[in-house]
Amino acid sequence: MTEWISTPVEPGLLRGALETERTPHGLLPHRLPARARRQFPDPALALIESQPAGVRLAFRTRATVVELDVLATKTVYRNAPPRPESVYDLVVDGRPAGSATADGGNVLVVDMFTQDVEQRPGPPGTVRFAGLPARDKDVEIWLPLSEIAELIALRTDAPVEPAPDRGRRVWLHHGSSISHGSMAGRPTATWPVVAAGLGDVELINLGLGGNALLDPFVARTLRDTPADLISIKIGINLVNTDLMRVRAFGPAVHGFLDTVREGHPDTPLLVVSPVLCPMHEDTPGPTAPDFGDGKLRFRAAGDPAGRAAGQLTLNVVRDQLARITALRAEDDPHLHYVDGRSLYGEADFAELPLPDGLHPDTAGHQRIGERFAEHAFGAEGPFAAA
């Protein structure tokens, strides 16, 4: 009979979260700190930052069975096709070792058109991994991309201790839903996780689906977070939301970068423009959901003529970012720029099209992650090891 050891989930077992909150159920990881959370009234962003993309439990143990009790909060969309079940990924000594799901949980039913939300309460569930090798090993449990996970307790058949610090550099990344991991299939398949593995770095992923909007509270979060490497992927969400015009965009980018540089004056900083998205290359937003064929797809709801009035398109954004970074690099030798189409461009779209018109699938994430790692972490890259 298995003799279980129950270990409370404490912040020391977590990596990739900027802050944690003790709830009535357990420990809730946050990817934005409380100061930032107080400065946005948007419930959609509150949901997104609580989805633990890139957050993982990391510990060392001889256990052969690991169970994690969680209270999940899952999101479904009204009148939309069912979403794939969110999974938890197990990694042992740096290698994938399985995936599992959690039963039960709360459900948020969201209307994509009105943003109305209905909450249906549910019970906690358990994520279970068995058959682990009976030796000392480093174990990571990567939390799901698109559901909140309140962590209740960790049960094992041998003691656990926090994973040791391996001295790897910390890479802090901010971006949109693609950086968050939308449509990647599982938490270790997102392009930032792929790139971090190839670059042998510790990832903090501030990819915020729909919310890479040059918000000052995000810039201050990047400023105040210790990091050895920083990248910022800018553009697609500003087009999605039709949030600003060219006149506001340039100063907003400068202000965002100025704030980051207040805390990281000499840190390698890579600005990444949008990957290819044909519907918005020359057509402004907003972006609208479309269920016309029974599947969730997106379409550009703007008018190409809007460019004359200063509306943003992806090509406009790229031109502006190339100009801004070249200007700033005259006084900032640690600032770098990459055109996102070098990570995913026309040839990639022909081979690996965007299933919903907006996001890459798992294979697309893999390609973007590999390309980013080659560009950033390669011998001549801005993030190359000294």
Rank of each mutant, 00 (worst) to 15 (best):
D290C: 11
G292I: 05
A300R: 01
G285I: 07
P274N: 06
P278L: 14
V271K: 13
D293T: 03
E281H: 11
T267Y: 10
E262S: 13
L296V: 03
D293P: 08
E262L: 15
G263D: 15
L321A: 05
P289V: 12
G310E: 04
S273A: 10
K295V: 07
Q311F: 13
V275K: 05
R307G: 07
L269W: 07
R318E: 12
D266S: 13
R297Y: 14
P284K: 01
E281Q: 08
R261C: 00
E281K: 02
V275A: 07
D266E: 07
M279V: 15
R261I: 01
V275H: 08
E262C: 06
P284Q: 03
V272C: 06
R318H: 10
G310L: 05
F298N: 14
R323G: 10
P284S: 09
F256L: 11
R323Q: 12
H280T: 14
V275R: 02
Q311L: 13
L257Q: 06
L269E: 15
T313H: 06
P286S: 04
V260T: 12
D266C: 03
L312G: 03
P284C: 04
C277A: 14
L276E: 09
P278H: 05
M279L: 10
V260W: 10
S273K: 00
R261Y: 07
A308H: 09
V316T: 15
L296E: 04
K295G: 10
R307C: 09
D266L: 15
P274L: 14
L296D: 01
Q311G: 03
F256C: 12
L269P: 02
P278I: 15
L296M: 11
G310D: 03
